[in-house]
Design a protein around this nucleic acid. Structure first.
Lengths: 149, 149
DNA sequence: TTAAAATAATACCTCAAGGTATCATTTATG
DNA sequence: CATAAATGATACCTTGAGGTATTATTTTAA
């Protein structure tokens, strides 16, 4: 009933990058601010690049940059970019055909919740998050983690 | 962003048992109707018994029965009975201290969603599900599964 | 042109949720 | 009392998400 860790990470990464949205961010900088396991972060930056939501510049002085205007990127876009297409689409009881055939006893109530969540995620942009105050989405319980390459 | 399979199963099991709430249901009957993997079902029936939401009668002619009035059992109760206490309590970004210390940029919007979900789950009883029509929460894409004990 | 600093690719490891297998225990009934 | 029919306890297997390790590639700049 929560987002996957991968989606949480992606949301934090994109939020962080959006603070300076024209800058080329190095994986190492993101790691030092967000404390996401470094090698996993690296892997995911590549995935996000493949999804097109960020672009990468290889080689020395390389890094990552947000590919579009932060006003045009919704939280739902970010979640989708992680490959998590199934955000709140399933039947409450987990029935495969619920949406198609007969509806389960929770269908209407659950559908309302799903639509609500999707609406909030789709209508909240990175730009809007930024307006809620700088860096308040960065972890505030930072136990220092060492990088190990 | 979905319930655990275990919680889905528990909801289906309880919904099924609620259709005849005074009856002693055998695991085998529940299996034949719901097509939940038999041995996993058996294990979970024992877990639900330990949680107190159902009672078990051992020995020949034994089975399981709902322990309280179905008007008094909410969907949230059932989810909690599976040990899933974390239903929609977490920070959107996954920060540990968000609720306590500084709030993340999504705190208010997300809190509203969480409260909404919890309110619906806590206020919907098994009795109410039953009113939505008999057995419409039973799987309708039943591929016959064999039991193997 | 070579070394250093960055990302990319690939393969592997770990752990918990979901699922399976086996044996033990309880109880009704012939 | 013995058997069958039910649940209980316990241990193990499987799979995918999350995480790690190693090597390759790209690019800048001394």
């Amino acid at each position: 009933m929560n987002l996957s860790k991968t989606s949480e990470y992606a949301l934090r990464i994109m939020s962080y990058m959006a603070m300076d949205d024209k800058k080329l961010h190095r994986a190492n900088d993101i790691f030092e601010s967000l404390q996401i396991p470094f090698r996993y972060l690296r892997k995911q930056m590549t995935n996000l690049t493949k999804s097109g939501i960020i672009i990468s510049v290889q080689g020395k002085n390389g890094g990552y940059r947000i590919s579009r205007s932060i006003g045009e990127i919704s939280l739902l876009d970010i979640i989708h970019a992680t490959g998590d297409q199934q955000i709140m689409t399933n039947c409450f009881f987990g029935f495969e055909n619920c949406a198609l055939n007969r509806q389960c006893a929770m269908h209407d109530k659950w559908d309302e919740i799903r639509q609500n969540i999707n609406q909030v995620l789709a209508s909240t942009s990175l730009a809007e998050l930024n307006e809620n105050g700088p860096d308040n989405f960065i972890s505030n319980n930072s136990i220092q983690i060492t990088k190990n390459s």
